[in-house]
Amino acid sequence: MVKKRIAKILSFRYTMMAAILILLAGGLVLLPKYQESEGIPAEQLLSNIISLERYVSTDQISDKLISQDPSFILIDVRSEERYNSYTLPNAINIPLKKLLDKEFESYLNQDQYDVVFFSDDNFYADQAWAICNRLEYKNLHVLKGGINKWFTTIINPKKPNENMSSKAFELYTTRKAASLFYGVVYPDQTKTKSVIKKAPRKIITVKKKKKMPVEGGC
């Protein structure tokens, strides 16, 4: 009786063994869920955060805009309302809230252009940067100081004191010239223009009269 039962159980022994092994193997499949955690590891993100390579200065951006460098796109992460009131030339508006929307992904997730985030300060731009950086988007930058810095350096540069170095003066004149490019007009500009207009008239008439007799002599 007992022998019969044992024999019955033993006839299933191979299927049971296979079942146990498959269960064990199934356990492995459950393990790797940690690796699915989205984006770059936290250690990497931390070291990216500490490094200040992401910042670009307003002067650099201004230079690029003036030379019409096609290799970068400006992204304004402020609200639409603020974007409409003032933004940098050719900037694209992606409000921070909509950063991860599908329609904007093609701007951010590519490796052809340098992406430069900016906002009023660099606070929200930094946040946009951090989120995109975690998603391993490439070539991301942040405009240091944002629009506020842009205003104080490029649009309305401060005149250096007389006892400052000549470099400060050079910087001031380049910045002032740059601001002309962005639509600012200076009152003293008109004076210089009128002076230029007067000068050539006199020169042309006088010179040509002088040449005349010389040619005739030949």
Partner: peptide, 16 residues
């Protein structure tokens, strides 16, 4: 944080 310190458009218009 993120307060706009200057109205750039207004400044440019003013200068014009």
């Amino acid at each position: 944080i993120e307060t706009s310190k200057a109205d750039v458009t207004a400044f440019i218009q003013e200068s014009v």
